[in-house]
């Protein structure tokens, strides 16, 4: 027997996930342009791992496999993981991260809709704690590269850990701009001279800033098609801008300008694709603002004063814990009960 309403808007979880993946395309395009095609390999690898582990877990948990695989959520998680770790990471890094995200962070909590933490960020956190060296070897953008490994060489390194004899890892990888900034500041270099280095572009890092722009473009698409609301990205980026701005105003020599913070690291990715994961973010508007502002503050604190180069993942996870509390205390007043409560 079925009951009213008898009509439904033609929309489904799987479509939503697909749209979000579609919104990742501009950033992937920028990645391809600046860093070469190896990102496609890690995307594929992550996707295969995600689908395989998801299917296996659904089977083990005695859940219907087909409808849950069709929801595309595992694929989206895989893409986000691939985009947030170094593209030239060894194959097992991608596999371990993705499998951990799907098995532990998602399915063991009850699968789609029941995970308290963002699976992609769990994967990132696990990897950066367990394999810190591998996680800091980021590809050098094409225009800065001295010795090109070539796609075949990259594959050989990725799957066989083999490098050409006359080359070291440092020839084609580098630390991220955030990491570089941190190290250099530690050495006493002033911001202005650090930014003079070739790896820095107009906004943040050469190449990576354009990937961030890609995320921004995709994010605006998500907002325009009403997949996400403005609350989370605006509150996150706005807070990050304000916090970084205040510090920068106080001491421009030691604190990077706010735009640098917005366009480096995972800030853009996080603002539009990580924080906005509906499962792990608050449901109320006020809650979303608090959640995103908190994440921005934590991101900045970890970036500037913490031990890790980027704080997005840990900020997200820390704020994920607070979601039920935030939701509880930001319940909006319902129709007709606004005055009465006052």
């Amino acid at each position: 027997m079925f009951y009213s309403p008898f009509i439904r808007k033609p929309i489904s979880v799987s479509q939503i996930m697909l749209r979000v993946m579609l919104a990742l395309i501009p950033a992937i395009g920028a990645y391809l342009y600046y860093f070469g095609p190896i990102i496609l390999v890690s995307l594929t690898l992550a996707s295969i791992t995600a689908v395989a582990t998801e299917a296996a877990m659904l089977k083990l948990r005695n859940r219907p496999v087909a409808p849950f695989l069709q929801d595309n959520s595992a694929l989206l998680t895989a893409w986000l993981i691939a985009l947030s770790i170094p593209a030239l990471a060894p194959w097992w890094l991608v596999v371990v991260g993705t499998a951990f995200a799907i098995v532990i962070a998602k399915q063991l909590y009850g699968g789609l809709g029941n995970n308290p933490f963002n699976p992609a960020m769990i994967a990132y956190a696990v990897l950066i704690i367990s394999f810190p060296t591998h996680m800091t070897h980021w590809l050098t953008p094409a225009m800065l590269i001295h010795a090109d490994l070539g796609f075949a060489g990259q594959l050989a390194y990725m799957f066989g850990n083999v490098l050409p004899q006359n080359m070291t890892l440092d020839a084609f990888t580098m630390a991220t701009p955030l990491d570089t900034l941190k190290t250099q500041l530690h050495l006493g270099t002033a911001i202005s001279s650090i930014f003079g280095q070739p790896i820095f572009g107009g906004l943040a890092g050469q190449g990576s800033e354009m990937v961030a722009v890609g995320f921004l473009v995709g994010g605006v698409y998500l907002w325009a098609t009403r997949i996400i609301t403005w609350h989370l990205p605006v509150a996150y980026l706005g807070s990050l801008f304000v916090i970084a701005g205040i510090f920068h105003l106080i001491d421009p020599a030691h604190y990077a300008p706010p735009l640098f913070h917005l366009f480096s690291g995972a800030a853009m990715l996080g603002a539009f694709f990580i924080l906005t994961d509906p499962v792990t973010s608050p449901t109320t508007h006020k809650g979303k603002l608090i959640f995103a502002a908190g994440a921005a503050l934590l991101t900045y604190l970890i970036r500037v004063f913490g031990g890790f180069p980027d704080g997005m993942a840990f900020a997200t996870l820390l704020m994920n814990i607070c979601v039920p509390l935030i939701d509880l205390y930001t319940q909006p007043k319902v129709f007709g009960k606004k005055e009465q409560a006052r």
Binding site: F2, V13, D71, G111, P278, P332
Partner: peptide, 24 residues
């Protein structure tokens, strides 16, 4: 057409966006 099988709630809050009684 009969409803497609129900999936788990992903807390997307589309329901809260349209609720005329401003419920969650």
């Amino acid at each position: 057409p009969p409803a497609p099988p129900a999936m788990p709630c992903i807390r997307c809050t589309r329901c809260a966006e349209v609720c005329p009684q401003e419920l969650q």
